[in-house]
Write a protein that binds this DNA or RNA. Structure first.
Lengths: 187, 187
DNA sequence: GATCGAATGTCACTTGGTGTCATCACCCTA
DNA sequence: TAGGGTGATGACACCAAGTGACATTCGATC
């Protein structure tokens, strides 16, 4: 692709994570990140629409995996069952990224701006799931609620996952979260 | 309070909403808002931590009302039942603000930055509800899920409310949303 | 009416973010 | 192999959000 040093985007992402972890998000300027990657501020903004976005690159892949799982679910499965098939894919995706996920989570946890961005990414994920459910014949209202609920379940489980030490625990934590939601709403 | 023209904060808020509605959020600068209110940019940032915040002033009142309802719920009510009592209070709070809520919603809907801020406000609302539930003796996990679910229910119902024409429909829409969530998660 | 404190103004500055144009490295083709 | 095309990068100027430091203004109070 590029004719200079390869993978400008990857270098920028790596430099950003490193600097954020070392000295904090607010204390790191875009100019610094670019310089650490041997590029300029202008180039940073060609790859990332804003400074936060560099931490949310993977969200598209997450959505694709999850949606793929939903589409592959048996036709007669209900909305939550279909969503749960998607969670299998998601758990697999994160299987070897526990350390990275923890680092990234800590950075985000330390900064409200980043939490805002994370929430809107989850919201857009919920929107995609909703559409996938509607495609399966689920009613719009049910799809809204089911997608919101499942994203909440994922979010809660993911937060637990990064704060404990077993990289393989994600799927189990998601199931526990789902079960808890069931018992709470049933009451 | 103030010794100049009274209610600087109120004037800033009013000027902001008006300008945002007229010419859009991005196209309105803080300096413009301040000038319209007969103040300066610096004073704007003394009342509002950033430009978005001027649209989210009421969120504290919403949380207080909802929490008040939860605390007033019968001791033996389950988490979702207690939350639902809070929704009565919330519905009352918005009874005479339908037009304003619609205007504000349209502004927010037109701007992703503002949607981010809205989501984090809802998240903080969920956190407050969670704490109120824990105070009632609900387990932490159940409180997390119940608060998240109830905020989702509120969000969905509110979105419907501002897009239809009956200002008195909020409580009914919230109940419908809640029922939908029950039936979806039960499956 | 001197003084005090809270609210507001002034000013300079940093940083995120953008528009525009120049430049560079490579590829293709004559 | 010279030259032109093309997409990635750099250079530079600029705007607007947000902040820190200090000055000013008004009203209250003694």
């Amino acid at each position: 692709m590029s004719r200079w040093e390869p993978d400008a985007e990857g270098r920028l992402g790596k430099a950003a994570i490193t600097l954020f972890a070392e000295q904090g998000y607010d204390e790191t300027t875009v100019a610094e990140i670019a310089e650490a990657a041997g590029l300029t501020k202008r180039t940073f903004f060609r790859y990332f629409s804003d400074k936060r976005e560099v931490l949310f690159n993977g969200s598209h892949e997450l959505a694709e995996r999850w949606i793929g799982g939903i589409e592959a679910a048996p036709e007669d499965a209900g909305p939550m069952a279909a969503v749960s098939v998607g969670l299998d894919e998601v758990a697999e995706l994160f299987a070897d990224r526990h350390a990275f996920a923890r680092l990234r989570s800590r950075i985000i946890a330390a900064n409200p701006e980043l939490q805002e961005r994370e929430l809107i990414k989850l919201q857009s994920l919920a929107g995609a799931i909703q559409a996938a459910l509607v495609d399966r014949g689920v009613s719009v209202n049910a799809a809204i609620l089911a997608s919101q609920a499942s994203v909440t379940v994922f979010h809660v489980a993911f937060a637990h996952w990064v704060e404990q030490d077993d990289p393989a625990a994600l799927r189990r934590l998601m199931d526990e979260s789902l079960e808890e939601l069931r018992s709470v709403t049933a009451a």
